Amino acid sequence: MRFSAILFDLDGTLLNTIPDLAGAANAMRHDLGMAPVAQDILATYVGKGAEQLVIRALQHDGATADDALVARGLACYTQHYRRLSGTQSHPYPGVLEGLNLFRAAGCQMAVVTNKSTEFTGPLLRHHGLVDFFDVVVCGDTCTQKKPDPMPVLYACKQLDVPPDQALFIGDSINDALAAQAAGIPMLALPYGYNEGRPVQSLPADAIVGSLIEAAQWAGCATRPTEPA
């Protein structure tokens, strides 16, 4: 088998968390006297962690987000996200099937996300995914977040797998750049967020429609036979 370990992003790759993230961002804006922002727009602000989501949401109307406002907004957002996280999020189609294919092939698996530890573990448990993963690297595990390669390389070290034996599966430029800098092949999924940019713009090795297709690409599952 080509890969010993498979690394996954979380938001936009395993789970559709936009309803919860957008709900918390708009609740924050409401508390600060701001009008709500459409969910599809807030989705383009996701990818670099909660603080960047808050900053972008605060600046949506052209407002200046100074340090005091960002601190107030982040505290407010976090309070609302604690209430909303997991309430409307759900795994994407093919996630459970794909994870089972990778596990059946004997791959070690890890999550590498910019989401904080506080929310990552509960989300994985809530959706019945936590037992698939040998390692979970969160946005506060290392001193740097994606697109820095540090969290990706840290996951490989924890799995005791050389980077050239790992595969990263994600949906955004942060995933692609982190994998590229770590020297790890990367598959991109088209249904994620990617800050509003087309997935075709990513420096990925391939674009796959689901984790099932990702397992097939990695040689961890047979492709269905084409009809005659």
Rank of each mutant, 00 (worst) to 15 (best):
F3P: 01
F8H: 08
D9K: 01
G12L: 05
L15A: 12
T17Y: 06
T17N: 09
T17L: 04
T17A: 13
I18D: 02
L21S: 13
L21H: 13
G23I: 11
A24I: 12
N26F: 06
A27Y: 11
R29E: 15
R29N: 15
D31C: 10
I41H: 05
G49C: 15
G49Q: 05
L53F: 13
L53R: 05
R56W: 10
A57K: 04
Q59P: 04
H60Y: 09
A65G: 11
D66P: 13
D66M: 04
V70M: 03
A71R: 12
L74M: 14
G86K: 09
G86C: 14
T87R: 15
T87I: 14
S89G: 12
Y92A: 09
E97I: 01
G98T: 04
L99Q: 01
L101T: 01
L101S: 01
R103L: 09
G106C: 03
N114K: 04
F119G: 01
F119M: 11
T120P: 07
G121Q: 13
P122A: 04
L124V: 08
H126T: 11
H127P: 11
H127W: 14
G128H: 10
F132P: 07
F132G: 06
C138S: 15
G139E: 00
G139D: 02
T141P: 13
T143H: 11
Q144A: 14
D148Y: 10
P149I: 03
P151C: 05
A155K: 00
L159P: 12
L159N: 06
D160S: 09
P162H: 03
P163C: 07
L167D: 01
F168K: 02
F168P: 00
G170E: 07
S172N: 06
N174R: 00
D175K: 03
D175M: 07
L177N: 08
Q180P: 02
A181M: 06
G183D: 07
P185S: 07
L187Q: 05
A188L: 04
Y193M: 08
E195A: 15
Q200R: 03
S201W: 07
D205P: 01
I207M: 09
I207K: 03
L211M: 09
I212L: 06
A215I: 01
A218K: 00
E226D: 12
